[in-house]
Design a protein around this nucleic acid. Sequence first.
DNA 1: ATAGGGTTAG
Length: 637
Amino acid sequence: MHGRSRVFLLRRIHLKDSDRPRQLSCQTSPSPLPPDSNLKPLCLQGRLHEALLGMATLGAEVRFHGYDALLTACIDRRAFLEGQLVHAHMIKSQYLPSVYLATRLLIMYVKCDSLNDARHMLEAMPERNVVSWTAMISGYSQKGHCAEALGLFVKMMEAGQLPDEYTLATVLTSCTGPFGPKHGRQIHSLALKTNFDSHMFVGSSLLDMYAKASEIEDARRVFDILPDRDVVSCTAIISGYAQLGLDAEALEVFKLLHKEGMDCNYVTFSCLLNALSGLAALDYGRQVHGLVIRCELPFYVVLQNSLIDMYSKCGSLIYSRKIFDNMLERSVISWNAMLAGYGKHGLGSEVVRLFKSMVQEVRPDGVSFKAVLSGCSHGGLVDEGLDFFDFMVNDQRMKPDIGHYGCVIDLLGRAGRIEKALDLMKCMPFEPTTAMWGSLLGACRVHANVSIGEFVAQKLLDIEPENSGNFVILSNIYAAAGRWQDVARVRELMKERTVTKEPGRSWINLDKTMHTFYSSDRSHPQREQIYAKILELYERIKEAGYVPDLSCVLHDVDDEQKESMLLGHSEKLAIAFGLMGSTPCKLIRITKNLRICVDCHNFAKYVSKVYARDISLRDSNRFHLIVRGTCTCRDYW
DNA sequence: ATAGGGTTAG
């Protein structure tokens, strides 16, 4: 055991020792039982109401131990009304509570979610200790009232009260949001001064604070110097990576800690599954599911929800549904995860069917409607989607947020009702987002609406000139209309505004290894075979009618170079590799970090037809399941 | 007495 932990232990032992003489003296000269001595056994047996009756009968004869037992029972059972009765009884009997009992009252109010009463209690206390302050700070933290929690912490310091490890662990959870890291670092230095920085609870709180502030290296540093680790601190670092989208790192650190024999609980697995969802790592997901089963954990809705989500994001909806059907109880999140799964796979009718059974059991929330609306959009159920929006607003009386409007704009665009979508954007109570303009631009491309497409693209280029995807789509629109001069103009524009974007990346999991490809990537050990395979595919699908869409390349090069750049797209590398490596007839599963490009989508369709192979392609937006040359997205995405 | 990690959607 680390030295500092031993110090904590000694402190506790020391406190216990100081209690001992009093207990001994009680034993040597037994006094008659106090009048309120029957309250405690009643409370311990869960007979709180009988104990309250006893309290009322005793009047002013209730003592410390009676009140303590009553308050403990109220705290355990979150019994607010009963707790208020105890408090009122104290006042009526003119009983002056000690700091301890007053703090117990405060804690009772905190646990019963009555922060105002708790705050009044704290203000009225003539004397406070570190527990009183911490309990109140904890109340604010847990309700998400970060500013109040931090403000009270400062007040505590000003009052001359030093924080202990409980206070620090608590107040750090309120260091979120824009000023979180600033306050968090100050509290970190305070923890260093008071030698609590490597306390396990303070440490996990610290590392989580850094992770939520995107300072993952600082989080890792805190984790690495912790003298002891437990489930929570290990889970916190895994979760930290996963929250920032560093899914591979989350998996790596889990593998490491698992080898070292870390404990896992349902939170650990939830975080880990979350990372595997991001990686679309079905093999690992199955393994972790197996691990979950072998751990024989009790039933946790949260964990089952994570499994549903993992299977659906790894492309295995059948397993998602199996988990969903076998659940002992479901939360609204279980339904939402299942709905979103069907939606991302383009199964609109399944979304509608599931939603209809959902409303029989639980009240859908805002997320449910987002899933249903986007599910209808991806599944091509335009009118159904609009009906659901109507149902949400007029029937359920729910206020749509900006995301719901985004879904409806997407729906209208898909139906080719582009003017209508523009109208909605003008009259909705939010500023249009780039995602909305982007969705509309996509609609203009599919429905060949050049004039609105130009207008929308201009908007987008003003708002986010750094996103080259917008230039590409605008160029697609011009190319489709045969306006080659405008294609050239867009290319010039792009050159002027040195466009940087997140590099496109596709990956495929084969034999429990993740093979990642970037555009024109030559780093794979089998690169020669992969490029040879691409050329082979290219020749054969050209015979079947594939024509490369050169407008997908915006670099100012000649057509021959464009062709070779197009063939180097990461999706194509992954497809070629998938065809080389996997067993015939097996579904080829590919994942991409951005949206799939028009040409790659077309390429995949031809390959699937000519080679009679099914291809599942998950892009940042949805799944494209391509079977015999037809995609579930119906060429709209 | 008071404390740390948490699933859907975006």
